[in-house]
Structures are given as structure tokens and as C-alpha cells.
Design a protein around this nucleic acid. Structure first.
Length: 281
DNA sequence: TCCCAGGGTAGTC
DNA sequence: GACTACCATGGG
């Protein structure tokens, strides 16, 4: 068990709902996250004797796993203050205030790839439903939950199987992608060592992975924080808050923000995305 | 009924 | 490179 007493840059709702993660449930003061074949339980504690100070108790297979998953050794005070001092737009200032508790998780790369192939032109509740159906059908039964399916087990699924899980036209992409991911070409340890441009090029060869999904995979699965995924919400920000053109390509929108935020692009993207989607402004 | 969602593919020019 | 039709499906 790990206890988080300084919650300046740790808020479990922010972490779960900022768009990086699909397998979680928030039930009152207890949040459960499923990551790979693990279950992580986060209990929110409120100390009424100390001005309702909030702390968290986190339970999972090991403290080491928890530490790595939540990236607890990363100093968010530095990231946050750098972005704050560089914030030349009103929306970024508001977004930083709104999503202060966001942390980018260390997720399993393959789980991120599979999940974000489903995410294209889709809404989050439906994405979650499809992923849960896949886990139930092809993931190991762990008693109270199902593990995320292994790449080998997913080889058993047909286009029709995936369609039944609500993947729609993405079912065909998934069958192709799973096949490719099972080859040596996509050995994860090798991918981790690739420079970002090469990694992106490789990811783009997967069926159903375009520039936006590739950037999400790189940011959430491979710690490439210089990436700024441009989805529809980021497009809204680009057009409404930065005067960008609606005709700009996804790559162009990403590059616009990546030039602005450099090695902190991924963090900035999360604050902005979360704020825009939650506030709808 | 139309519009939208953490968009991408394939075809055309 | 840019533009376009098309792709399932549930929610507002």
C-alpha cells in the first residue's frame, strides 16, 4: 500500500477522466483501475479534523508497481510551474488550474495501442464498452475482473467477433493490427528504443493507426512527452482559442502546439483536452 | 432528423 | 501534398 498525503498534483478523478485511460470505475470514495492483468484500488480519505484534507491509499500487487504506474517519482511541481510561467493564453491558465491533479500514467504499450485503435471517431462510453467486452471474451478471468487480453489470445478473434463487441468498421482494422502486433516487427522492447520519428513511422503502418492515434500511443504508451495528439477537442481549441484554420491537417495542428510546448507538449495537451471536454467552452 | 465522438483508409487529382 | 466519400453506432 502506498499513501499519497501531498495531493497538490494528484487527483484520482483527474487522472482517470483526462482521457488517457479507459478501464476504471469511480464508486464513491473508491476508485478501481484495471491495468494489464492488475487491479489497482484507490481509496480517497477525507480528514475532517484537518480542514477536510484529502489523501489517498493505493492498493495493488506491489508498491513498486504502483510507483511506476502513477509515475510517483516525477516532479509535477516543475512541469506545472514551467507551463504556468509560459502560459501566454487564457485557456492554458484556466486548464492548469482545472486539471492540477492530472498525472500521465505508465501504461502497457500494447494495451494503449489496442485501446486507441478503438477510440477513432468514437465516444468514450462506447470505447469503454468495447474494451470491456474484449477483456471478458479474451482476457484471463481474475475472479473479480478480467485481465486485458494478451496479443496471442486476440489472434483467435474474427472480424465478426469484434463487430459483436461494438467495434463497428474498426473490427477489420483490429484483426489486421493484432496480426501485425504478433510479429517480430512489433517487438515492444525494440519499439521502446526507437527514436520518436521512427517509432511513429512504424506505428502508422498498423491498420487503423493514423497521426492522432499514433501520437496518443507514443504519449501514453512510450513516454514521448514531446507529442501533442490532435483530436476533435484540440481542434476546437486550435480554432476557437488560437485562431487556427479548420482546414489544417492533424499533423499541422500537432506541430503548432509541439512548437509551443516542446518537451512538455504531452502534459499541456492533457490539461487542455481535459479542460475543454469537461467545461465544453 | 441531423450532428458528433480522443479519425483513418482508399481513391482521385 | 490536398480533397472527398465512406466507414458503425449510440447519445444529444
Amino acid at each position: 500500500m502506498i499513501e499519497i498525503t501531498d495531493t497538490t498534483y494528484f487527483n484520482i478523478k483527474d487522472i482517470c477522466t483526462c482521457g488517457q485511460l479507459f478501464r476504471f470505475k469511480i464508486e464513491g470514495d473508491q476508485t478501481t483501475i484495471y491495468a494489464g492483468d492488475q487491479e489497482i484500488v484507490v481509496k480517497t480519505c477525507v480528514d475532517s479534523a484537518q480542514n477536510n484534507k484529502i489523501s489517498y491509499k493505493i492498493f495493488s500487487k506491489s508498491d513498486k508497481f504502483i510507483k511506476n504506474y502513477f509515475d510517483l517519482d516525477k516532479n509535477y511541481a516543475i512541469i506545472y510551474s514551467k507551463l504556468s510561467s509560459e502560459a501566454n493564453s487564457l485557456i492554458l491558465k484556466e486548464a492548469l488550474k482545472f486539471g492540477r491533479g492530472i498525472r500521465i500514467l505508465n501504461q502497457d504499450p500494447v494495451e494503449v495501442i489496442i485501446s486507441f485503435i478503438i477510440s477513432q471517431n468514437n465516444n468514450i462510453p462506447r470505447i469503454q464498452k468495447s474494451i470491456e467486452a474484449m477483456c471478458k471474451a479474451y482476457g484471463e478471468n481474475k475472479g473479480s475482473y478480467y485481465a486485458f487480453p494478451s496479443l496471442k489470445s486476440l489472434l483467435n478473434a474474427t472480424v465478426e467477433d469484434f463487430k459483436q463487441m461494438g467495434l463497428g468498421y474498426r473490427a477489420e482494422y483490429m484483426v489486421e493490427a493484432v496480426k501485425a502486433l504478433n510479429t517480430n516487427e512489433f517487438n515492444v522492447e525494440t519499439l521502446k528504443k526507437l527514436p520518436s520519428p521512427e517509432l511513429k513511422e512504424k506505428l502508422l503502418t498498423l491498420k487503423g493507426v493514423g497521426p492522432k492515434v499514433a501520437d496518443c500511443i507514443m504519449l501514453f504508451g512510450f513516454n514521448r512527452f514531446e507529442r501533442f495528439p490532435a483530436d476533435t477537442w484540440i481542434r476546437h481549441i486550435y480554432e476557437e482559442d488560437f485562431g487556427g484554420s479548420e482546414k489544417a491537417s492533424t499533423t499541422k495542428v500537432s506541430e503548432f502546439f509541439e512548437n509551443m510546448f516542446k518537451e512538455l507538449s504531452g502534459y499541456a495537451q492533457q490539461y487542455l483536452y481535459y479542460y475543454k471536454r469537461e467545461k465544453g467552452e
